[in-house]
Design a binder for these strands. Structure first.
Length: 839
RNA sequence: GCCGGGGUGGCGGAAUGGUAUACGCGGUAGUCUCAAAAACUACUGAUUAUAAUGAUCAUAGGGGUUCGAAUCCCCUCCCCGGCACCA
């Protein structure tokens, strides 16, 4: 075969991309597929400048795995889509002064253009954009279903608020007390908002984790986020009052050491009437100052704790001591009961507080280390750890942990002052957003029906913890997001949609009167919490998903995405799946059989970001080197789950390899067949290794093995068609265009188009896997000294190997005149002679 | 502070109890060329110098298990990620 010009990726890549779409080789028949394999990439939320190379990195890995599975005769369904609704897209539109609704069209166009350019084996007839009414109709439907089952509710609560994005946020979107999207300090506000009752599934979400084929890292992150812990709720009675202050604690063994109680500033409204008039002004001043602090200000961990005495006294239920009640902003209202028992001897925060306000300290656990005991006595430190209880009434002398601690809990419970209380870190999912670019929450408020419409709810089978206070679900969906000019967030606690009269005014589904529409939109994470159900069911018009198709294709077999969604998206998706399961729509509780977190691609040792100016745009590299080179380079950088550092010299090296393959296969292929057994065993060994690596998503080592395969055969005068085919088939998932072009050149005059991507993955012939000759490393006193080559069928003949080894010059030299004390043989690998000086 | 993942040449990284440094980048020398680029070939962990099919030392540091440890165990240090005034 002649060298048909040089390697011109720009010529061949577009050609094959079009041909693949035209011949529909990546479209599966969802109904009749025999070996369904749902291979899914977390769909991105790109900004309008398009995808950066990190997105390509993620997507390419998914694609290579999917292509590999397809060649292994699975019916692979690999759809892509665009998560374009939400604050991220809207913030970008705001920045450049465009309307997000108009701008989404440009984003979408760029997105799909780039996705095509990287050469994905995607079913392009099944795409999703979350901001299209035909999609978000079902997001709204899902919300209504949740509402009908009592899992969507409206409640006034202390919520996270981002003053920069001018909207409330879910707990999960607050990272280190800052907004996940913009990084601004988050504050707390008491607001009435829509919540989804994810905590109903706390235990199921926690217990199912054990059996998921996910990485420990993600599993641990979810466990910690759900944060289940068992403790006691202990009731403290307020002196001269019927009021009670319950506290929650895991350290009830220190109850005799409680010197004071501390409650959160938000607690003030509950105890206001108990505060003596003389100090009420000072107390309320302190409370007001605390409430305007951001969460960061309140939670920065420093020694300087502030607080104020309320004038109230409570009674320690075990020893009847009179203890003061303080308000301090180191106590959080949304943790435990919002009230804490102050044990300064055994809690660092309480200790700091007691020192600052000169409160007494009583040690109730005595430690083995006398130095620590002395320090506690001298008010120098607090300490937590196991020891013997002291100053603890009937419990004095008992252990502070273990069985004694359990007994103590039982006693406290029996005496009626405490009860077991399991606490979770997980909160209900706050989904209201006071923004424009999101899915409208499909609810209507009717003043007319307020408190009168319980019958409507029961007729419509709406159960729930719902009191028919005037909120009704829309009766026809979708509620279309209108185009509005002034879409900027208002910062008034309302969405800009609230200024749009046409949108706000609605008919009450119950009485037909003029009613008010909900103007908040929902969190983007609601859009993405169920999209994987929709891809295979896109043609279903009557329901969110098609039951038969879903049965066949879900749960998702392989889900690949960024680890940054360990708690957000993955937890929400699990919740929605559990909900659908409980509605008897689906039979499984978990959406993703396997989740694989790819690593982060960095540049010059740092995370890519616009502010650092080190964002790599893939387009220019595709233009310069072609998509195939970029793909195979990205996968070669390092282990897929660890990410890597993108370097220009690296991609040039991979381009050289791709060009070498091109040259070899366009000039040196002949019709000879492989005769040498060494060559055969090398070939099948390579296939075997690459197959294993691809199965485990070890793309970097798979590529290294393909390179060795090339190096082995390219040094010959010419290569046989058989070898050329194996090389191309192994390369096909990595460099789909190049492989297709060369495959077609090697197979001219075909009656109809037969793509390399429809071929089977090369099979290993096991008889050739074990080489005729194997190498055994020979060690003398653990040091590698020589290597001997023996017939493979001799591998278990230890005596013979020993004989050969001891005949080697080097071995004789190193053993010298010492006597052999021990011989260790590891079959097929190594032999070690341990010697002893002969005296 | 607690939990999870790491630390291997000049660089990205191979190797999961048995030949450390595969594969690639970078570097050095050469071939080709008027020259350069490209391409190709050889060498490339460090030390040593009796210049070789040699020796010694190297997988963050220290200790242990083992005939044998980058790999398993214990302690220390450092980096990345998650959670966190959780009471």
């Amino acid at each position: 075969m002649k060298n048909i010009n040089g390697y011109k990726p720009d010529k061949i890549e577009k050609k094959w991309q079009d041909k693949w779409v035209e011949s529909k080789i990546y479209e599966v028949d969802l109904k009749s597929a025999k070996k369904p394999f749902y291979n899914l990439m977390m769909f991105p939320y790109p900004s309008a400048e398009g995808l950066h190379v990190g997105n390509m990195y993620a997507q390419t890995g998914v694609d290579i795995y999917g292509r590999f599975m397809r060649m292994n005769e699975f019916d692979v369904f690999e759809p892509v889509g665009l998560d374009g609704f939400g604050i991220h897209a809207e913030n970008f539109a705001l920045k450049i002064g465009e309307n997000p609704m108009e701008y989404s069209k440009i984003t979408e166009k760029n997105f799909y253009k780039q996705m095509h350019a990287i050469g994905l084996a995607t079913d392009w007839s099944k795409t999703i954009e979350t901001y299209k009414p035909e999609y978000y109709k079902w997001t709204q439907w899902l919300f209504v279903e949740l509402f009908k089952k009592g899992l969507a509710y409206r409640k006034s609560q202390l919520v996270n608020y981002c003053p920069s994005c001018k909207t409330v946020l879910a707990d999960e979107q607050v990272i280190e007390a800052k907004c996940e999207r913009c990084g601004a300090d988050v504050t707390k506000k008491q607001l009435e908002q829509w919540f989804l009752h994810i905590t109903k599934y706390s235990d199921k979400l926690l217990n199912n984790i054990e059996n998921l084929n996910w990485s420990d890292k993600v599993k641990t992150a979810q466990k910690q986020w759900i944060g289940k812990s068992k403790g006691l709720e202990i009731v403290f009675k307020v002196e001269n009052s019927t009021f009670e202050i319950p506290v929650w604690t895991k350290y009830w063994e220190t109850i005799h050491g409680v010197i004071f109680l501390v409650v959160a500033p938000e607690y003030y409204t509950k105890i206001k009437d108990l505060v003596p008039n003389s100090i009420q002004k000072d107390v309320s001043n302190y409370v007001n100052q605390s409430l305007i602090k951001t969460t960061v200000e309140r939670s920065t961990e420093d020694k300087d704790k502030s607080g104020i005495f309320t004038g109230i006294y409570a009674v320690n239920p075990v020893n009847k001591n009179k203890i003061p009640v303080w308000i301090a902003d180191y106590v959080m209202m949304d943790v435990g009961t919002g009230a804490v028992m102050g044990v300064p001897a055994h809690d660092a925060r309480d200790f700091d507080f007691a020192i600052k306000y000169e409160l007494p300290i009583i040690q109730v656990v005595k430690y083995e280390d006398e130095a620590i005991n002395r320090k506690i006595e001298n008010r120098e430190t607090s300490f937590e750890g196991k020891g013997i209880l002291i100053n603890s009434g009937e419990f004095t002398g008992r252990q502070s942990i273990g069985k004694d601690k359990e007994i103590m809990a039982e006693v406290l419970i029996k005496s009626g002052i405490a009860r077991w209380q399991v606490a979770y870190h997980l909160r209900d999912w706050l989904i209201s957003r006071q923004r424009y670019w999101g899915c409208p929450i499909p609810m209507i408020f009717c003043e007319n029906c307020k408190n009168e419409a319980k019958s409507w709810f029961s007729e419509n089978n709406i159960v729930a913890n719902w009191d028919a206070s005037g909120w009704y679900p829309e009766d026809s969906l979708p509620v279309v997001l209108p185009y509005i000019k002034n879409y900027k967030p208002l910062g008034t606690g309302k969405s800009p949609l609230s200024l749009n009269k046409e949108f706000v005014e609605a008919r009450c589904p119950n009485c037909g009167a003029v009613a008010r529409r909900e103007t908040d939109v929902s969190d983007t994470f609601l859009d993405s919490s169920w999209y994987f159900f929709r891809y295979p069911s896109l043609t279903e018009e009557k329901y969110l998903l098609n039951i038969d198709i879903t049965k066949k294709w879900l749960p998702v077999n392989m889900y690949i995405g960024g680890a940054e969604h360990s708690v957000l998206h993955l937890l929400y998706s699990r919740f929605i799946t559990m909900f659908l399961h409980d509605q008897k729509v689906i039979e499984f509780e978990e959406p993703f059989t396997r989740f694989y977190a790819h690593g982060l691609l960095i540049k010059d040792g740092r995370k890519m970001s616009k502010s650092k100016g080190n964002v790599v745009i893939p387009d220019e590299y595709i233009k310069k080197f072609g998509a195939d080179t970029l793909r195979i380079y990205l996968m070669f950088i390092g282990p897929y789950n660890q990410g890597g550092d993108f370097r220009d010299t690296g991609i040039e090296g991979m381009h050289r390899f791709v060009k070498r393959v091109w040259t070899l296969l366009t000039t040196k292929v002949n019709v000879s067949t492989l005769t040498s057994n060494t060559d055969k065993s090398f070939m099948y060994g390579s296939i075997n290794g690459v197959t294993k690596d691809l199965t485990d998503l070890k793309f970097n080592t798979a590529i290294a093995k393909i390179m060795m395969f090339y190096n082995h055969f390219s040094s010959k005068d010419g290569i046989s068609l058989e070898v050329a085919e194996v090389l191309l088939l192994m390369l096909a998932p990595f460099t789909p265009h190049l492989s297709e072009e060369l495959w077609q050149l090697l197979h001219p005059n075909q009656l109809s188009f037969s793509s390399i991507h429809s071929q089977s993955w090369p099979k290993v012939q096991k008889t050739f896997l074990s080489e005729e000759k194997i190498d055994i490393a020979i060690q003398v006193n653990n040091k590698f000294r020589d290597i001997i080559s023996i017939e493979n069928n001799m591998r278990n003949n230890e005596k013979e190997i020993q004989k050969v080894a001891l005949a080697q010059e080097k071995i004789i030299k190193f053993i010298g005149d010492e006597s052999i004390e021990k011989v260790i043989y590891i079959p097929g690998k190594a032999m070690n002679f341990v010697t002893k000086k002969s005296s």
